[in-house]
Amino acid sequence: MTEPTVEIYTKAFCGYCHRAKRLLDSKGVAFTEYDITMGGPKRTEMVERAPGASTVPQIFIGGKAIGGSDDLARLEREGELDALLGR
């Protein structure tokens, strides 16, 4: 089974971003990170992909918005993250 693409929008010095990336790293998940510290087109893209989202991180698995760091941790805690990751 092919693992879905994981994308994460982050900002420099963001503790929640660091926590989400650490969880993904601990699971051996490859992800693409978009640093939107200075705004720009990637920030606009994030808001378009996750309407109403204004905080980081914003995490997408297989193109589906799953939310932020707390949402990612909840999925892991409830045993649902591995299924989303195709494991």
Rank of each mutant, 00 (worst) to 15 (best):
R87H: 15
G79V: 12
K27I: 13
P4W: 02
I66T: 12
G68F: 02
T10M: 06
H18P: 05
Y16D: 09
Y9L: 11
M46F: 04
M46Y: 06
T32D: 01
L84V: 02
A30Y: 06
V47A: 05
E3K: 13
Y9Q: 04
E3C: 09
R43I: 04
H18R: 15
R22K: 15
G39E: 01
E3H: 12
L75K: 08
G86A: 14
E78H: 12
G79L: 10
T55F: 00
G67V: 13
P51S: 01
V47G: 07
K21E: 05
K42P: 07
D35T: 01
E7L: 04
I59L: 05
L85H: 10
G39Q: 03
D35P: 02
D35H: 01
E7G: 07
S69F: 08
H18Q: 14
C17K: 03
R77H: 14
L75Q: 11
G28E: 07
E76I: 03
A20L: 10
Q58I: 10
V29N: 08
P41Q: 12
K11G: 10
G68V: 00
L84D: 02
L81D: 08
P57F: 08
P4A: 11
G63H: 08
Y9H: 06
F13D: 15
G52M: 02
K21Y: 06
C14Y: 01
G52C: 04
V6R: 05
F31A: 07
A73T: 04
I61H: 01
V29M: 09
K11A: 11
T5H: 06
A83N: 14
V47Q: 14
T44P: 01
T44F: 04
S26V: 06
L84C: 11
E48L: 02
L84K: 15
E80P: 11
K11V: 14
Y34P: 00
G39V: 06
R19V: 10
R43D: 04
L23D: 07
D82T: 07
E33I: 00
G52E: 08
I59E: 09
M38D: 15
K42E: 15
G67F: 07
I66N: 11
R77Q: 15
G79C: 13
I66P: 09
G40E: 08
D70M: 13
A73D: 14
T37V: 02
D25E: 14
